Amino acid sequence: MSFAQARDIGIDYRDYQKVDCLPSGVRVTAIAGVWGDYVNIRCLFEDADDNRYLRNIRRWGDAGYFVKELDVDAKQILVGEVFEL
């Protein structure tokens, strides 16, 4: 979704803690994917303790928007999907 769409439903990615890698040993739920510029996506996650994480994913050529710790392309993540790290 775009930044404007996220804002319209009450999601502001600036309220999320920026992380270079999602924390290990934590179960996170995908909240949204907010487009940045043409080379990145801001993936938003939340854990059971209401900690919010922003994982900025940059496009790497043909590899797409790969999230290494999840072993998935960010464009394939579904809202509400749960990941055990």
Rank of each mutant, 00 (worst) to 15 (best):
M1W: 13
S2A: 07
S2W: 09
S2N: 12
Q5M: 13
A6W: 04
R7N: 12
I9N: 00
I9V: 12
G10V: 12
I11K: 02
Y13E: 14
R14K: 15
R14A: 02
Y16M: 04
Y16L: 03
Q17M: 10
Q17S: 08
Q17V: 00
V19Q: 09
C21A: 08
C21H: 11
L22A: 01
P23M: 04
G25R: 01
R27E: 14
V28T: 02
A30Q: 09
G33H: 07
G36R: 05
D37W: 14
Y38P: 00
Y38G: 04
L44C: 05
E46Y: 07
A48H: 12
A48G: 06
A48C: 09
D49G: 01
D50H: 13
N51E: 05
N51H: 14
R52S: 04
Y53K: 02
L54W: 11
R55D: 00
R55Q: 05
N56Y: 08
I57Q: 09
I57H: 04
R58P: 00
R59A: 11
R59T: 08
R59G: 07
R59F: 12
D62M: 12
A63G: 07
G64E: 02
G64H: 07
F66M: 07
F66T: 00
K68Q: 11
K68Y: 15
E69L: 07
E69M: 09
E69R: 09
L70R: 05
D71A: 13
V72W: 01
K75T: 08
K75P: 01
Q76N: 11
Q76E: 10
Q76S: 12
Q76H: 12
V79Y: 14
V79E: 14
G80A: 11
G80L: 08
E81H: 08
F83A: 02
L85N: 09
L85I: 12
